[in-house]
Design a protein around this nucleic acid. Structure first.
Lengths: 228, 228
DNA sequence: CGGCTGATTGAGGCTCGTCAAATGTCGTGG
DNA sequence: CCACGACATTTGACGAGCCTCAATCAGCCG
């Protein structure tokens, strides 16, 4: 079971060593067992902001997190969504280069960077794990860039839904953790275009939308054919 | 001076230790002094392909390199351009996830991954340098994604020109190493749109185009204002 | 039931892509 | 030195796709 201590501020918090092995069964998750502090964030709450000191690395215990970059005029691109078991907030430099917010009510495990650095200096395997986190993130971001630069709205939405279903292990019947606005800001589209595209996919009988945040896949093959 | 040995195939080639310190004066360049093999590639030649084993890490000695991803129907997105002193081809996994080609005639230094891994296992600082390369690449790719997802053609072209001028240390008078097609495939546009945008920038007296591959900045401030 | 938020739908416009033609550039050979 | 061809770039006309603005609809909570 996960530990009990819950603090809003990780600095000076008690260190716990939750059993994260259960998450690590999935292929995407690296082990990286580290003592950390549990924190809870309400829906929409900022976990860290762009430019803040990168004191901690985080792992999602429950809920979901969005990391994002913004332009000075308010345009936003969500860099990635972080689901249960995913890490985020790992930076090479001293400051975060992206912001992070809780999508719904969310629990995260916060690990001090100093702790991570100290251990990584001794443990070569851990050091490699840390590198792997960055490398995996780079690979995902490259794929994301390809989608943003060279794919149409329909392809973007299909690729997104398939990827999310895969990551959430809900291959037939997906419950979206995020709003249309979040989807749009991840896909480089507007909410209207996302909405219209979902309606279109429904008209083609590729998906069904029994509820706003519920996607039922009725022709996965067609979706896969389109976007890959 | 750089060493003499030049081989088309790095496997089994003589190891040399070129003096790379001269490149590392610039802020972007990490030291990472490693023995490697020089290789030359003609304009357009493939350095490695998507899916090939990632045996080597490369550093540009002269010329320039593009790394790219493609969709099955041939649409291409250039992930990044790699200029003199830049590294590329560093992967966590066993296979390259992107392709790399020489833009013009290009010399690179190829470092065996096995050598890098062996040294990194002993040298914590080197290990950190390797991580830094990946982290820097991630940061650039995130910025790239923001550009692709949320900026217009004019902003994309301006941001690209300013970034390139900065990296080539040609702040007033830039010589482009790449074709319009390469620019378009980096910016998620078509060659026609890139060309029209350059003409537009010229009409605004923000740049001059004395030759096809030559950009003279006449209002850097305006360009900077637009895209940041 | 009413009000609030988020999602959908519609009409119209703008940006960028497509296709085609013209122009420019560069290397080769007469 | 110029003529030629191959290729890259620019320009133009037009259309498609996505965005903007606005109205309507659906859930949700008090």
């Amino acid at each position: 079971m996960l530990a009990q201590v819950v603090l809003q501020n990780p600095v000076g918090g008690a260190c716990i060593g939750p059993d994260v092995a259960e998450w690590d069964a999935g292929r995407r998750l690296s082990a990286l067992p580290m003592p950390g502090v549990r924190m809870t964030f309400a829906r929409g709450e900022e976990i860290f902001g762009d430019g803040e000191p990168a004191d901690h690395v985080y792992r999602v215990i429950s809920g979901a997190v969005r990391t994002y970059r913004m332009l000075s005029d308010g345009r936003r691109l969500i860099s990635d969504f972080h689901l249960v078991g995913d890490f985020f907030g790992l930076e090479m430099g001293q400051e975060h280069r992206i912001g992070a917010e809780a999508i719904g009510d969310t629990e995260v495990l916060a690990v001090r960077r100093s702790t991570l650095n100290r251990r990584a200096a001794e443990d070569c395997d851990l050091s490699s794990q840390v590198w792997r986190l960055t490398a995996d993130s780079l690979e995902r971001t490259r794929e994301h860039a390809l989608l943003l630069g060279r794919q149409g709205a329909c392809e973007r939405v299909c690729a997104f839904l398939l990827d999310l279903a895969d990551r959430l292990d809900q291959p037939a019947d997906l419950t979206l953790p995020m709003s249309r606005q979040d989807m749009a800001d991840y896909l480089g589209l507007t909410i209207e275009t996302v909405s219209r595209t979902l309606t279109q996919l429904q008209a083609w009988n590729w998906i069904a939308l029994p509820a706003v945040r519920r996607i039922v896949f009725t022709d996965r093959a067609a979706m896969h054919r389109l976007c890959c």
